[in-house]
Design a protein around this nucleic acid. Structure first.
Lengths: 249, 249
DNA sequence: CTCGTTTTGTTCTTCCGTTCACAAACTCCT
DNA sequence: AGGAGTTTGTGAACGGAAGAACAAAACGAG
């Protein structure tokens, strides 16, 4: 009953078209490393939640909501409302006291902060089961990521088309990266090949890597790596399952 | 050159066959919730790293290492050695001062702690691209997880075999769970179906869920949910990419 | 047996993230 | 216009995790 509670059609929010709403009236003289013009440093924990808020907002907007309170949005995102408000406050003051947040406007602001106002081209290396699934995953495209290259070391895949794209030999990585201006690479190879692929990716100029191979990658400074470890998640669940079983014994 | 550094063939470690090495000689009278017999509460952050240590140890053992220092193991796992030692100390005193850890023995102890000394049966719901990739993922089986059921709402899949298993109608979930004693379920459906699947899973008696659908799931107390969000990871990378680009401008 | 070397296990300090609680700001009703 | 009712944004308290540093324990040499 949370969505029909408020009696309003209030569209009269003041959306502050200027994004650089510096809360400190004094000009911040510190141009120290990584300091964004319009705000303070955004904590890593907050950044990892922004995509969740973004998705929750997408859902609310699709359902016709135009204004939502921090409580509602927090419920949709599965977090505490105080945490949500603090997270959003790092981006700026995009809410209206006594009213809430304009869903569409807030969505835009978060997308802008993450850098999703334009598409990101992505290459996937390793077109096995997982690589094919990733290439076909519609969630990427709908969130601003465009798969522009599929690469695999195995030459027999070269004839196939996956998700409407040809599978190209791994050696063409650097060419694809250069031609398409790719910055983000996905590794979906077996663990044994992952470090080599990562090295080639770095050499080709990629600066962000999403690693699905169960290995720790060594990369130079300035290259971001995130890893998704499928069996790790199951192992963590198994631990808790194990504990539950012990608790009953 | 880190592996050939020590001049040893030291196999003379004292492996302490008793697992219940209570550091407090006094009988701890507090049987308060979730307290394990042989040790203190293990922090969540530590638990999420145990699988990484496990994998690093597997690699070392395969390469013939029998003793490793916290420094070596930490390097293989990509973490700080002090953090590694503290994490391991929550499990007990399994190292030998001046020597290091017996790789195989430590591997066993961590596996035991997580509960990987026996196999965990797992069901996968949603046999699309991702579900098929997961069903075929060899990393599950090699780490103690056995896929015993594939379920999908679409009846046209029922003829196919995926990874050597038949795809069964979703309605048979409860039966499979009961017959096979399954505790862990994997959701690989579209977002719209995920909450319903989760509800059915809970009703069927599953107490751990790994969710690949981009939705926040609501589950009752006592059910653990972990989520893997593919596009979220890319969005976090995009944010950092975005910042790098801004820093140059 | 004793000393020096190595490496663990743990304590202490510091930092980061979460939560609470409240003042400021906005709307609505009378 | 003023007061009641909401809801944001944030200062402050709290808790947990990370890293530095060190004492305790084991080993080897002499």
């Amino acid at each position: 009953m949370r969505s029909a509670r408020r009696p309003l059609e209030t569209r009269k929010l003041t959306p502050r078209t200027s994004a650089t709403s510096s809360p400190e009236p004094v000009a911040t003289a510190d141009a120290s490393a990584g300091q964004r013009p319009g705000g303070r440093e955004i904590p890593e924990a907050t950044i990892s939640r922004l995509p969740i808020y973004l998705r929750a907002l997408t859902g609310l907007v699709e359902r016709g909501t135009d204004t939502c309170s921090s409580e509602e949005l927090a419920a949709a995102a599965g977090v505490n409302s105080a945490k949500l408000r603090k997270d959003l406050s790092y981006l700026g003051s995009y809410g209206t006291r006594g009213v809430g947040y304009d869903a569409a406007y807030l969505h835009y602001q978060i997308a802008r902060e993450i850098g999703l106002t334009h598409d990101w081209p992505v290459v996937i290396v390793g077109i096995g089961n997982l690589g094919q699934a990733l290439a076909n995953y519609s969630g990427f495209r709908s969130r601003g990521f465009r798969v522009v290259g599929l690469l695999d070391a195995a030459p027999e895949l070269a004839e196939h088309q996956v998700a409407g794209l040809p599978v190209r030999p791994f050696a063409e990585l650097a060419g694809v990266v250069r031609e398409q201006g790719v910055a983000i690479g996905v590794i979906a190879t077996p663990a044994a090949a992952a470090q080599d692929v990562a090295d080639q990716m770095v050499a080709a100029g990629l600066t962000s890597i999403l690693n699905f191979a169960p290995t720790v990658l060594a990369v130079p400074e300035g290259v971001d790596v995130r890893k998704v470890d499928l069996s790790m998640e199951l192992q963590i669940l198994a631990y808790h399952e194990h504990r539950k079983a012990e608790a009953l014994a």
